[in-house]
Design a protein around this nucleic acid. Sequence first.
DNA 1: ATTCTAACA
DNA 2: TGTTAGTA
Length: 118
Amino acid sequence: MRIGELSRRTGVSERALRYYEEQGLLHPERRPSGYRVYRDADVPQVRRIRVLLAAGLGIAQIAQALPCLTDDDLPAPTCPELVAELVKHRDRIGEAIDELETTRANLDTIIGADRRAG
DNA sequence: ATTCTAACA
DNA sequence: TGTTAGTA
């Protein structure tokens, strides 16, 4: 299939699909015309990419993670090294949440002071 | 009608 | 990422 169909079947813009290729996430063949040709397997592959993006992973990390995932819609890590990195990523998110909660508490204090000040 | 590359109000 | 120009 060409990029238009893949875009429709995945809900991902053609622009994004070309960008994913540029970043090494997809490797479509090329027709003599220059048109990209995708395989059926690229449909679930794109969904996996979106899941990983939604999980907060960067393009570079996703490029390395894709080979270590089961070929299913819901990515399951097969390489132990990948699992370790994902856990590390999860920990960073936890830290970020803690910092945001502190920031929110500080804001609440200011808001409270403002209300008391009228 | 579709896709491609390159570039930016 | 969207969008647009000029092509093939």
